[in-house]
C-alpha cells in the first residue's frame, strides 16, 4: 500500500511541478519541492521507525509553567 501511495504522491508532484516550471514560477516550484521534500523525509524517517521529535512536546514544555500556575 505504501508503495502505491508514494507513487501517487510523486506522480502528482511531478505533474504539478512541471506545470509550475512551464509558467516559469521558480519561487513557487522551489517552495513546492522544499515542503514536499521535508514532508516526505519525515514520513520516510518515521516509517523506518526513527524517533521524530513531536512538536506537541515542544508546545507542552512552553505551556507547562502556565499549567502548573492554574492547577
Amino acid at each position: 500500500m505504501w508503495v502505491i501511495l508514494y507513487g501517487v504522491i510523486l506522480s502528482i508532484s511531478w505533474i504539478q511541478i512541471r506545470a509550475l516550471w512551464k509558467q516559469s514560477l521558480k519561487r513557487d516550484s522551489f517552495f513546492y519541492i522544499f515542503t514536499m521534500g521535508l514532508s516526505l523525509t519525515i514520513l520516510i524517517l518515521s516509517q523506518l521507525g526513527l524517533p521524530i521529535p513531536n512538536p506537541l512536546d515542544g508546545i507542552s514544555i512552553v505551556y507547562d509553567p502556565v499549567h502548573s500556575l492554574f492547577q
Partner: peptide, 17 residues
C-alpha cells in the same frame, strides 16, 4: 492531455482506495 492523465490517476487511486 494533462487533465486526462490527472483524471485517470485520480480514478485509479479512488478505485483502489
Amino acid at each position: 492531455k494533462r487533465r486526462l492523465l490527472l483524471l485517470s490517476f485520480t480514478l485509479l487511486f479512488l478505485l483502489t482506495s
